[in-house]
Design a protein around this nucleic acid. Structure first.
Lengths: 158, 158
DNA sequence: CTTTATGCAAAGGGTTTGCAACAAA
DNA sequence: TTTGTTGCAAACCCTTTGCATAAAG
């Protein structure tokens, strides 16, 4: 899906839900989907203000849940103090995250085998497998062995 | 592992790390492992105070990381505002959690197939599979279909 | 005695919210 | 107009921390 397509979908979602298309919201949408990196609310505020300096922190916090509702942005709990937001679900709806607890970096991956197994487990337990989300935390093998992690500051959030 | 065995292991851990065995710490350990339910720091404080009313919130917050260090208690990020603590890892070291985002209940499960797949993925990406942790979020199939969730208030955290 | 631990209360920090001014439709 | 939205700043809430006192070893 193109960036333009994403914006249109969101505008459409807002219109059909009686939400107003304000300049601030457009700036936030622009900032939210013009990157493929994960970001925090604070970072999104900064980037939104480059589009429209009048955007306030409160509006960012109030708009984020709307974007998440569309399914095109996903809230990511990476185990840090803040929430992160991932704009890559439009193009990779089934990706998961593996998080290095040492170097704080995130690698996105897709694995059909895991998806199937998740679905089976969820279904067996009476859950809806359609909305299963997965997070893996791990430590760096290399860091454990050599005391340094080549990933550190080199592999950013995709 | 018996509750008694757990307590002894933790006392041993503390002694060998130069930590003092205070009445408050003993009360917290007692409270932490006399249940198999998940709990928050606040709940642990309450339960600790039933053992020793002099326990303060600060001491609970300062002791929790020590218990987590022993590996017998695990900090659980369930996507809520607070952290949860899970005392069941002593007896089920490989269990995972499936969390219903509708009814807020948690089901613990073990799945060898999933464990293996996790390890393979982690290893392929250069992570240490020994410390992989997993969390699944899902919605209730029943709730989606019938508008009500039989699990609600009936299946507690194991 | 020496050193660590404790309780209290205040501080932190991300997120939410009340409210009066403002702007979309 | 009418109703939803905004910015500001204060409020929230869990967790952490500074400090003087207490107690373990």
């Amino acid at each position: 899906m193109t960036e333009q397509g994403i914006k249109e979908k969101i505008i459409g979602f807002m219109e059909s839900n009686g939400l107003r298309i304000t300049a601030q919201r457009q700036a936030i949408i622009e900032a939210a989907f013009s990157t493929d990196e994960h970001y925090t609310a604070e970072e999104l505020l900064e980037r939104s203000r480059k589009v429209d300096p009048s955007v306030s922190r409160a509006t960012v916090y109030r708009t984020l849940p709307v974007l998440v509702q569309t399914g095109l942005l996903r809230e990511l709990d990476l185990g840090k103090d803040q929430m992160y937001y991932d704009p890559n679900y439009a193009n990779h709806p089934n990706h998961n995250h593996i998080i290095c607890t040492d170097c704080d970096k995130i690698v996105e991956f897709e694995d059909y085998c895991l998806d199937v197994r998740e679905s089976v487990i969820a279904k067996n337990l009476g859950f809806n497998p359609g909305t299963v989300k997965l997070r893996i935390e791990a430590t760096c093998e290399q860091l454990a062995k050599t005391g340094t992690c080549s990933r550190r500051d080199t592999v950013g959030a995709k």
